[in-house]
Amino acid sequence: MKEISAKEVEQKLAKGEKVNIIDVREADEVTAGKIPGAFHIPLGLIEFKLNELDKFKEYIMVCRSGGRSGRATQFLEEQGYKAVNMAGGMLDWEGKIE
């Protein structure tokens, strides 16, 4: 499973790179703040939202600490999607939140 650090994601955003971030935390966690531009799809709904994802794009998966996003990353890879887990999750995130 590919991983990326929170700092690397922050640097990509600062450079203006187009990144596709999916936050798999629960709704109450996301209301406390998420990475700007991140899509919110709770982990339990990922399999039902596959038709909304593009197999030609790479997705950076985010959760609180990296565990749930790791499971989401593995699931997406098994379905033929390109996914990367943000290691450390939002606990390691030091950038802006919305």
Score class of each variant (00 low, 15 high):
Val30Pro: 05
Ala38Gln: 08
Leu45Pro: 00
Val84Ile: 14
Glu29Phe: 08
Glu77Lys: 11
Leu91Cys: 06
Glu17Phe: 13
Ser5Asn: 10
His40Ala: 08
Glu52Lys: 15
Glu98Tyr: 00
Ile46Thr: 14
Leu91His: 12
Gly95Ala: 07
Met86Phe: 10
Glu94His: 14
Ser69Asn: 10
Lys18Gly: 07
Met61Gln: 01
Glu17Gly: 13
Phe75Gly: 01
Arg64Val: 02
Asp23Gly: 07
Glu10Asp: 09
Leu13Pro: 04
Gln11Gly: 01
Val24Arg: 02
Glu52Ala: 15
Glu98Thr: 04
Val62Tyr: 01
Thr31Ile: 14
Gly67Asp: 12
Glu47Gln: 09
Lys55Ile: 06
Gly33Lys: 05
Glu47His: 11
Val9Glu: 07
Ile21Asn: 03
Gly33Glu: 03
Asp92Ser: 15
Tyr59Asn: 06
Val9Tyr: 11
Glu98Ile: 05
Val19Tyr: 07
Ile4Gln: 07
Lys12Asn: 07
Met86Lys: 11
Gly37Ser: 06
Ile35Asn: 06
Gly66Met: 09
Leu43His: 05
Gly70Asn: 10
Gly80Gln: 01
Lys18Ile: 14
Asp54Pro: 10
Ile35Leu: 09
Ala72Thr: 06
Asp23Leu: 00
Val19Trp: 11
Leu13Lys: 09
Ile46His: 08
Gly88Thr: 02
Cys63Trp: 02
Arg71Trp: 05
Glu77Tyr: 04
Asn85Gly: 03
Glu58Arg: 14
Leu43Met: 12
Met61Cys: 05
Phe39Cys: 06
Asn51Glu: 15
Phe39Trp: 14
Glu29Lys: 12
Val19Ala: 11
Gly33Ile: 06
Arg71Ala: 06
Asp23Met: 07
Gly88Lys: 04
Trp93Met: 03
Val84Gly: 04
Glu3Thr: 15
Gly33Trp: 04
Tyr59Glu: 00
Glu52Trp: 15
Leu50Lys: 13
Ile4Val: 15
Ala83Leu: 01
Glu26Val: 09
Asn20Glu: 09
Phe56Ile: 00
Glu10Ile: 05
Tyr59Met: 04
Ser65Trp: 04
Phe39Glu: 14
Lys96Asn: 08
Lys57Asn: 14
Met61Lys: 01
Glu94Phe: 01
Leu45Lys: 08
Gly70Gln: 08
Gly95Asp: 06
Ile97Tyr: 00
Leu50Glu: 12
Met61Gly: 02
Phe48Gln: 15
Lys57Cys: 11
Asp28Thr: 13
Gly37Phe: 13
Asp28Lys: 12
Leu50Gly: 13
Pro42Ser: 12
Gly88Asn: 07
Met90Thr: 05
Gln79Val: 04
Ser69Ala: 10
